[in-house]
Design a protein around this nucleic acid. Structure first.
Lengths: 193, 193
DNA sequence: TTCATTACTTACCATAGGTCAATTTTTATA
DNA sequence: TATAAAAATTGACCTATGGTAAGTAATGAA
């Protein structure tokens, strides 16, 4: 069994156990692509054609708000990545995606994904499980925004991704937390004290 | 074709067109239940056993934060309703659900839902589409929290649900917007001026 | 209908975070 | 490795929202 298959199985295992053959079928559809640091993968007002899984590196999902970028997701190894809203609707959205480092991703095209969803029982199930896990993730982001201060959210982010500071520019981390770069700077200063 | 079937078809139609027979099969699994005003449907730290669709009335999904409730979703006619996180994982969560008015809902039990997902091709697809639409909804809530002031979010909510003020207590609307009741009161005062 | 309870509003001051401008630090590139 | 550009920090000041306490209005149970 190849490396990609094993990796895919490990990503899905917490959500859904299937025979390794299922993951192998899925993994065979995945192609590999590498992006440069700061490379834009999807541009605003375009339609997403691929679903990505990050193998090595990190990337963000953004939208432009007046005069600055707002990051709605920070993605790392084994995370799904892409503008799912656009992928699912196959319509352009204002969202754009960028990687923060040189990043290797696996991807499946929209048509391959739909073929998988439509023509295999496991595919349909994988699609549902994946969408459910994305929902759960978004709901927890919403709850954090509604119930925690920026300082607490920053500390939580650090504990989940200890090396995030070395990997992702602070200005993007700030926008992900819902604050501006200056405010994050003050929070960081306060914490080290 | 009965009323419930037609209604279910109308709810799903924007996302997915299927023959009416498919919706009929689904609708046949749905039971009907009525809750009193302010009745709690699911309690904190319990496991959700049902997926609801609101037929008439309104309800909210909450969690308790220190000394006050936080509303993470306000649901109205034709909305899905329930603690999906708990439903999907079949584990207890801190979330609880309450209805604001006398409310009639359709519901399908977890076991019937899984049976539908596992044993019918359309069922699997409906499950995916439903999860996707929940994800899209949560993502738009996150974007609103990250990019708009409470005042703008309040105005948007009013334009989407013009009668919300008559149907949902302001304190819950405030917590949904991420502010306290006093702040919403100030915003409302400012707007009428 | 009355009374108690809950919801909503107001006013006060406190605080988290925003804005702008200047400065320092880091990074990218010639 | 020098230089320019970008990122991060800092300070001064401002604004939206929070916390508390009090008052008023609406609601529900007897």
């Amino acid at each position: 069994m190849n490396k990609k298959t094993i990796q895919i199985k490990e990503i899905f295992d917490p959500y859904y156990s299937a025979p390794i053959e299922v993951w192998d079928t899925f993994a065979k559809r995945l192609k590999t692509v590498t992006f440069n640091k700061n490379e834009e993968i999807k541009f605003p007002n375009t339609t997403e054609k691929k679903l990505y899984i990050i193998n090595k590196g990190s990337a963000g999902i953004f939208l432009w708000k007046e005069n600055h970028p707002v990051c709605i997701d920070l993605c790392f190894e084994n995370d799904f990545f892409g503008d799912y809203l656009s992928l699912l609707t196959q319509k352009p959205t204002p969202l754009y995606t960028v990687c923060f480092e040189e990043t290797e991703m696996f991807y499946i095209t929209f048509s391959d994904l739909m073929d998988l969803f439509e023509n295999s029982k496991f595919g349909a199930k994988i699609g549902r499980i994946a969408a459910e896990s994305l929902f759960v993730h978004k709901q927890s982001q919403q709850i954090e925004l509604l119930t925690q201060t920026a300082e607490k959210r920053y500390k939580q982010l650090l504990s989940k991704q200890p090396h995030i500071i070395q990997r992702v520019p602070l200005k993007y981390i700030a926008s992900y937390l819902g604050i501006n770069a200056e405010s994050l700077s003050r929070i960081r200063k306060k914490i080290v004290k």
